[in-house]
């Protein structure tokens, strides 16, 4: 009997030891994943806000520059792309497309002083630019959390637990090169009007 207790005891000690090692790791994985999710919700909030602002913007642009169909179409298209995007990668791509379209709009706006001076349009552009900045902040926060999470998932013993419980590495929200700079609103000349 005593002979049997020896090996069993050792096994129990090992199991307890492993549990002590694994449980905190498991918990930290859960916490890290929740952090990632909450930061992602922030990113989605801002994306949604941009998405909601676009129709108003398109309306006020149409009021002054209705024959700039090409720019208007590219904005509407980018918005549709945003609406159908699901993964962070797709959403990042759609967002870049929207940024591109908005930059083109800002170039076109130079030819329409009345549009540029329109209070409603200026407010919308401010909201859009502000949202872009919030998005950049949310993206940075999200990526930081993803980095922390992925570190746990990749390292021992986190990788064992992640494998056991099905935690997978999270995707970064990457902006295309050059998309770091939000389209800036420059009203310096029209401010005098």
């Amino acid at each position: 009997m005593k002979k049997l207790l020896g090996p069993v005891g050792i096994i129990i000690i090992i199991l307890v030891g492993l549990a002590l090692l694994f449980i905190p790791k498991y918990n930290s994985l859960v916490t890290a994943e929740e952090n990632v999710d909450s930061k992602w919700a922030q990113v989605e909030n801002q994306l949604q806000r941009r998405y909601d602002l676009i129709p108003n913007l398109v309306e006020s642009v149409k009021g002054y520059a209705n024959h700039e169909q090409e720019v208007i179409a590219s904005i509407t298209q980018a918005r549709a792309q945003m609406g159908s995007a699901n993964t962070p990668e797709e959403q990042a791509l759609a967002n870049d497309a929207l940024n591109g379209a908005l930059s083109r709009l800002l170039v076109v706006v130079e030819n329409y002083p009345n549009l540029k001076a329109d209070a409603n349009f200026r407010q919308l552009m401010d909201e859009l630019a502000g949202t872009e900045n919030r998005l950049a902040v949310a993206r940075e926060d999200y990526n930081n959390e993803v980095q922390g999470f992925n570190k746990i998932v990749k390292r021992f013993p986190g990788n064992l637990i992640a494998g056991m419980f099905g935690f997978e590495q999270k995707e970064y929200f990457k902006a295309a090169a050059g998309a770091e700079q939000a389209p800036s609103v420059d009203f310096s000349e029209s401010g005098k009007q």
Binding site: Q42, D126, A129, G130, N133, R134, L135, A136, V137, A138, S184, V185, D186, F187, S188, G191
Partner: peptide
């Protein structure tokens, strides 16, 4: 802290 709200201009 800040979530990034604000407005800017060039002058």
């Amino acid at each position: 802290s800040s979530a990034g709200g604000g407005a800017s201009r060039k002058f």
